[in-house]
Design a protein around this nucleic acid. Sequence first.
DNA 1: ATCCCGCATCGACTGTTGTCAATATCGACG
DNA 2: CGTCGATATTGACAACAGTCGATGCGGGAT
Lengths: 121, 121
Amino acid sequence: MSTDTLQPLPMATSIEEMQACCPDILGEAISEDEAIVAARVFKALGDPTRLRLLSMIAASEGQEACVCDLIEPVGLAQPTVSHHLKVLLEAGLVARERRGSWAYYRLRPEAVTAITRALGA
Amino acid sequence: MSTDTLQPLPMATSIEEMQACCPDILGEAISEDEAIVAARVFKALGDPTRLRLLSMIAASEGQEACVCDLIEPVGLAQPTVSHHLKVLLEAGLVARERRGSWAYYRLRPEAVTAITRALGA
DNA sequence: ATCCCGCATCGACTGTTGTCAATATCGACG
DNA sequence: CGTCGATATTGACAACAGTCGATGCGGGAT
């Protein structure tokens, strides 16, 4: 068995599931499963700290920032910041890339367009 | 003192506050207060039941529906449905109108456009 | 007036979430 | 290889949110 089969699934993000299932939330009545998928994305946005983190990342040059740059401005403990970034990551709103000791989080513009599309924009 | 001063404020919805304060969440770093306001709107969307209710309302003719029409398809107790509709109402995503014994909830398209605008669409 | 029906509110319970301190992991650099 | 710095994970705790049964309220109809 190759090592690829051990961790082949990058764990589809909520955004990706939403793109695949919920083209238009307000266009027609969505199913219960579709609602669960889409709600995960909005729930990730439904916290002030996460919105600030996302906003700060988006406002940074290259639309990316490392954790160390986010802790002080957000005013919370490092584990708390890591926790929120993980929620944003699993939602598919940001991507993570390790460079050296640092972890850089980058905004995923496709995620934003997926949301606006789901809202019928 | 007129009776208007007793209940003059229709209690500004979260959407209205967001329109007034957060033109572009992803354009520049938003403040803590702005994040709190905007997070309330997304939190209202961050529940599967509320998303389904909103979707069903939007898919109804005239983009409105009364509570009695929503209870059975959503499969939850009537107080629970009323609770979720209240959350959507206070978020500014829907409007309520009483006609006879029935309460009709209507989608507020301005709210949807306000969200997509805040996301920089 | 009274009863009924649709909806809102209340009280209680349970599961989830945000937060932090402590600890583990992981990479870089001597 | 051992230490140090940056992140992630764990465990615990308080606060919050979703759900329901019971109850309250208000408008029609009899």
